[in-house]
Amino acid sequence: MSEAQAAAAPGGDKPMIQIEHLNKWYGSFHVLRDIDLTVTRGERIVICGPSGSGKSTMIRCINHLEEHQQGSIVVNGIPMNHDIKRIEQIRRNVGMVFQHFNLFPHLTVLENCCLAQIWVQKKPRAEAEKTAMEYLERVQIANQAKKYPGQLSGGQQQRVAIARALCMRPEVMLFDEPTSALDPEMIKEVLDVMIELAHEGMTMLCVTHEMGFAKTVADRVIFMDQGQIIEEAPPETFFNNPRSERTQLFLSQILGH
């Protein structure tokens, strides 16, 4: 057992994610500025902010889809570095759901859910399929298991994407605007799945503009602008008594109409 694995053993009070002094630049553009964020086990966090504020970039740093230049990220006790083995070890603990689903179109729904179980976790196919069917059942889409993603609606595809991530039994789930590409009628079916997941105690970081969702399940709402965390508060405080003017303006714009 390596040092990192030892550190990854369920550690009770250890924070699930610890981000310190995170800085990132795209060329000369400073996208993330001195981000500090600690997420405890089981905490549900909603991140909002105007477009280009760095919210997606920040959560994508957590599983190293984006590389940061300064600062440290520790996920489940494993410090992030540039070693690909280490990165892949962290990714195994972190599930991610994307705005555009990113299902594999050449594989069936069931194969989408089994692929990483078989190749990353080295599970036998039968066992992988059993796990996949369990999670597909939970997102209420098991009856579509043999179909290809292209045959499903956007809401169904996103639920498959959630099931695919859950099949890896991650400790943290990252949601990057999971409902932004959906028709209004389909947003609820995806949010329902996410709410259920939150009630089961999953550690979640959600970039979303669904303020109803934030009010229902979030332990903390984080508001970002220009690459910085502007305000960080429990939902009641955040929505009723936002302290910064920037937050007040943002809230008045998205809730005002």
Binding site: N63, H64, L65, I84, E88, R91, R92, V94, G95, M96, F98, H100, N102, L103, F104, L115, A116, W119, V120, R164, A165, M168
Partner: peptide, 22 residues
């Protein structure tokens, strides 16, 4: 699209697995 590669990365698949399978 690069989303396909990212989805593979997020699931913990290595480079050759992502290329060969996805």
């Amino acid at each position: 699209g690069k989303g396909q590669n990212e989805a593979g990365q997020a699931l913990g698949l290595g480079y050759w697995q992502r290329m060969g399978l996805i």
